[in-house]
Amino acid sequence: MNPLTTPEHRGFGAICTDAGHLLIVAADQRNGMKAVMNHPDGAGAITHDELLAAKADLVRHLGNHAPAILLDPEIALPQVVDNGTLARGTALVVGMDASGFETVDGLRYTRIVPGTTAKKVRDLGGDAAKMLWYVRADKQGPDSRVADEMREFVSACTAEGLLLIVEILTYRLEDESAEEYAERFPGLIIDAAALAVACGAKVLKLPYPGSAQACAAVTAAADGVPWAVLSAGVDHATFIEQVTTAVANGAAGAMAGRSLWKDSLAMTTQEREALLTERAQPRLRELAAAVDGPR
């Protein structure tokens, strides 16, 4: 287990339900959010201002009903803080990773949003930070570039008194069949969790590893470090089942994005308010019940 510092304890408490379980609305997507918006000219025509307006409505009508919301420093921030859209009682998690990735020798590497440091997260009003890494634990060990980056980010955030959520995604290699990848997937998540913890991670955001047994193995690999399940774009009903299983096997909560709002981001503020209120908010309440459910 990697113990939290006093300010990290405060940050962790801010992103949890009253019962102490992780629950964060993920809204740091940029291209992914454009893709689900119903623009008459096509997803590629969504402008910066249109995306900012959609994110503001998502904060106003969904995120403000959650303990915390994850936002990006390229579109949403600092605007939704400076104009008072983000409610005082909703904690802010700042995503540090940029959209996309670079590929080197067949392995993926995350890019950081230029100028986004632990201090910058604080300057934006962040209560916590999130950084994404793509990991193939069967190819990358403690001496790898990705491990070095994790250690560097954890150290920098700890020095700033800022809790860092380490998000892990895995992926299929070019010479790997879909069947081979599916078979390896649970082990890749389990081993990536262990690697991140060895690099100092104090909170993890992970894909659902596929089964109750795999969730229990992730919990064991995390060695006391809390982990939250990410929604990965699955439908809401499926995600509730995944979270229920994960929580029953040691997960600390959930971070949900598209499963909550992907069919609620219409092009007009009026339509978004109705959909987010009538469709997304009930899903959030159901997710909160699953996160705080029997343990």
Rank of each mutant, 00 (worst) to 15 (best):
T116V: 14
D127R: 15
R172E: 03
Q140T: 05
D127T: 15
S155F: 10
G115V: 05
K119R: 14
L124C: 13
R122K: 15
L164E: 00
L173C: 02
A129P: 13
Q140S: 11
M150D: 00
K130Q: 09
S144F: 11
S144A: 08
D123I: 04
L164W: 06
D143K: 12
L169T: 07
A118E: 12
V135K: 09
G126S: 14
E149W: 00
L164G: 00
T117R: 11
Y134P: 08
D123N: 07
K130F: 09
R136D: 07
K139E: 09
L163S: 02
I165R: 01
A137N: 06
G161S: 05
T117A: 08
K119G: 10
I165E: 03
L163M: 10
R136M: 03
E167N: 02
A129T: 14
A147G: 09
P114R: 09
G141D: 11
K130C: 08
P114F: 06
G115F: 11
M131V: 15
R172M: 04
L124P: 04
D127W: 15
A129N: 14
E149F: 02
Q140F: 13
M131S: 10
P142F: 15
D123Q: 13
P114H: 05
K130S: 13
V166C: 10
E152M: 03
F153T: 06
A159W: 01
M150T: 01
W133Y: 15
Q140I: 04
D148Y: 12
R122F: 05
G126Y: 13
V166K: 00
Y171I: 00
D123W: 11
